[in-house]
Structure formats: C-alpha cells, structure tokens
Design a protein around this nucleic acid. Structure first.
Lengths: 153, 153
DNA sequence: TATTGTTATACTCTATAACTATA
DNA sequence: TATAGTTATAGAGTATAACAATA
C-alpha cells in the first residue's frame, strides 16, 4: 500500500491537478493552447498565423472593412495591426482602396490571390476543427460553442 | 430598404463575424481572454498573475513538488520558471528544501504566509468562477469543462 | 549519457505615447 | 475636438542554446 499522506520532504510521484481542473479558466486555456498549436502547424503552409487568418477571413466576408473595424472586432491595438496589413499587402493578398465616405480611412479588399488563399485556408481550418474536436459529437461541438459564447458575449 | 449586397468600395456598417464564430478555436480563445482579464483584475490585490496562482496552488496541493514537475504540468519552459520561483521566494511565500531522493532537485513548499495567501486567493478564484460563468447553470458549467477536457486531454 | 536547475539571449506579442491628416 | 492610420518604443511572454551539478 502506497503512502497516502505526504510527510515533510516527501517526493511527489504523481502531480495532483484536481483543483486547477475544477476551474473553467484553466480548462479553457489548456484547450485553447492545443487548438492554437494545431492551427499554427496546419496553417504554416499558407504562412498564416491565427491572427492573419482571422484578418484575411474578415476581409473576405467584409470587403471594404477598415483597419479600425478589424482592430475593434479582433481586440487588436491599432499599432499592432499596421505591420500585419503591410505584410499582407506586400504578399499581394490584399489591397487598400480609399474609403467611400471617410477620407481618413482605407477600405481593405482581397486580391484574386488573396481570395484563392482564404478559400483554401478555410478548408484547412474546417479540417482542423474536425481533428481537434474529433472526440465530440456534432451536438457537443455546437453545445461547446454556445457555452463559450455565454462567457464572452 | 438597406442595401444588402456589398458593391465595390462600399462601407461596412456591421462587421459580419459569423464565419469565425463557427470555429471552436475562435470561441475558446475569446472566452479565455475574458476569463484571464477578469482573473488579472481580481488577483491584482495578491500580486498574482494566473501563472503565479497556478504555481502556488500546485505547490499547496503538492508540497515538495519540483520545478521540473511544475514545468511539465503547466507547460512552462524551465528557464521561464526560474524568475517566478525566485520572486515567490523573495516574497517569502515559498521555500526550497533539498529533494529527499534527488540531489539535483529542490522540493518546493509554502511558508505560513504562502498558505494563508493561497487560501484567500482560492476563495477569490472561486468567486471569479461564479462571476464569469454567471450565465451558466451548474450543470452547464460542468458540461463545459468536460467538453473542453475532451479537446486537450 | 541523461536530467535538474540555471544563465544568457532572442524572438514574439501586446501596450502606450505621440504624431498627421482628415472629420 | 475627435477619429483613422501611423511611428517609435517599451514591456511581457515565450523559446532555444549552453553550462554545472548530479543521476
């Protein structure tokens, strides 16, 4: 029979994480890290990090969106978006056009190459969703997202 | 009637995030950020970040745990833990004692002050759990953690 | 030969202050 | 006066290489 009560200066064989595992935040963070890791690996072929994918996808579904709107939607500080947008433009995935009503702003649009990449990347993202939630049923996956939204919305 | 189909160079009034919201990763990350933000605010009185709290709590429930075990459990790189441990020791919340079986390692233990702080901090963490999951029933909260664990374990 | 703890270091991510041009 | 976009910069977080002491 193994010793149960840890006496002073006893080595820990198995780490007890039961307390941390009783916290939603701990579980949410661990799950997020696993998904982000898988995302980084699978999106590397496109040269896209999660944030780049989010930006491109939002431009795809919102042609003409401004940098400011991207910042608000994705919780990015404006100075931190500048470099990303410049890089996406240098890679000829997006273009900047004058905003129709606001001379200060620029509307962001995908190039043909950008559209093609987003299309492919979204397919990869879907496959990734399947893989990371492989142990969940369709109903459970839906339920999980509903519960998560109840926290952040 | 409002214009429905966005023509070239049309301003985006309302950003359509429906695609991103269909991804588990996006929802998990957003929820995690909300919880971490709340955690940072509420734990500031103790001078503890989430990682400091996790470290102290693991030492509390696993007296004698080594740095290496903390790193493995929390997915921290050993060099990045050194500073945290030093700081917690300087704050007289933990002590390092020789490991009983391994001369290379040090067992980590809470001081009386450390035990007192962990006790209080865990109460605050519980209150925080209540607040961040206020829109979830007890059953939903349990379900959420089970579903998250199915992703990361 | 492998592992624990450590130092030094670099790279990424995120945040703030301040500027310009337009509103 | 306020906002969009930008520059410069600082701080936090995270990663790798290499070392001494011990297994």
């Amino acid at each position: 029979m193994a010793t149960r009560k840890p006496s002073p200066d006893t080595a820990i064989e198995q780490v007890d994480t039961s307390y941390l595992e009783s916290l939603v935040g701990y579980n949410a963070r661990r799950a997020t890290l696993v998904i982000v890791d898988a995302f980084l690996r699978n999106m590397a072929v496109y040269g896209l990090r999660p944030v780049d994918f989010s930006v491109l996808s939002l431009i795809a579904h919102n042609p003409g969106i401004t940098s400011r709107q991207l910042c608000t939607t994705l919780n990015i500080q404006p100075p931190n978006l500048v470099g990303m947008i410049n890089q996406l433009q240098r890679r000829e995935l997006i273009t900047r056009r004058p905003h129709p009503h606001d001379g200060r702003a620029m509307g962001l649009h995908l190039t043909a190459a950008g559209k093609k990449m987003v299309k492919q990347a979204e397919v990869t993202a879907s496959e990734l969703e399947e893989a990371t939630t492989a142990r969940l049923t369709v109903a459970e996956r839906k339920m999980l997202m509903q519960l998560l939204r109840k926290i952040y919305i």
